[in-house]
Design a protein around this nucleic acid. Structure first.
Lengths: 117, 117
DNA sequence: ATACCGGCCTAGAGTAACTTCAGGTCAAGA
DNA sequence: TCTTGACCTGAAGTTACTCTAGGCCGGTAT
């Protein structure tokens, strides 16, 4: 499929996909006769993964490292596992942050409510 | 207190505080005789709020609007309440995102585990 | 009194991660 | 064949910091 469909399916924007490819974050992207990118379902799965990793705050350098490990073959699976475990810890931290911010907002909203009565 | 202490208490960096002040995000910052910033406990509470809002993804433009509303007095409390309610919805969305990413990571990790057996 | 020096100041350059733009090419339908 | 919407590249612009350079302030040890 072409880039616009890959964008629609993965959640990433067309421009972001091109940018990510230029930065080496997407392996195995082929080109059609006229130089246009062609995306396989596997490419789209990969993009979707990148979308969620980015959405939850993984820095690009880490994604870059992850893509390089993937390209280097199955021997790098333990390293990739470590990246995911680290990110999982980050997710937990972010959940705590959200809860803490929610508390603060709730308190402020109560004060506003009090004031508006 | 001085800026380094305000930074330590709020979670923001010294540079970020100076930047935020230049952008109009921090009301009522006074200066000592030599031009150095002086922060009251109220300033620190405000900085702490900004820290958590930023940490959970509030764009600077919204913080700017919030600061302007605050400076405009109590009549803007309903507007400020709306900003908080909007942000609260954003927090809920982010929690969903985290859960979804966690699922994806868990699935990938299972596949890796399978492979490493 | 003064010399020191870590913390504070500003203006401006640098960075990360996109996003938009300008100018040109491709390809599928009328 | 002609058109027109999607695609291409390289470069400039944006957001939200972050860091650097060069200079000033202020608490304290001599």
């Amino acid at each position: 499929m072409r880039i616009s469909e890959a964008a629609a399916r993965s959640g990433l924007k067309v421009d972001t996909i091109r940018y990510y490819e230029a930065e080496g974050l997407i392996p195995n992207v082929t080109r059609g006769s006229g130089g246009q990118r062609r995306f396989s379902p596997e490419n789209v799965d990969w993009l979707t993964l990148l979308y969620w990793l980015r959405e939850t705050g993984m820095p690009m350098k880490v994604m870059q490292r992850f893509a390089a490990l993937y390209a280097a073959g199955d021997a790098t699976i333990p390293d990739r596992k470590d990246i995911f475990l680290d990110h999982s810890r980050l997710l937990a931290k972010r959940r705590d942050d959200l809860d803490r911010c929610d508390e603060i907002l709730t308190r402020k909203l109560e004060i506003y409510e009090e004031y508006l009565r």
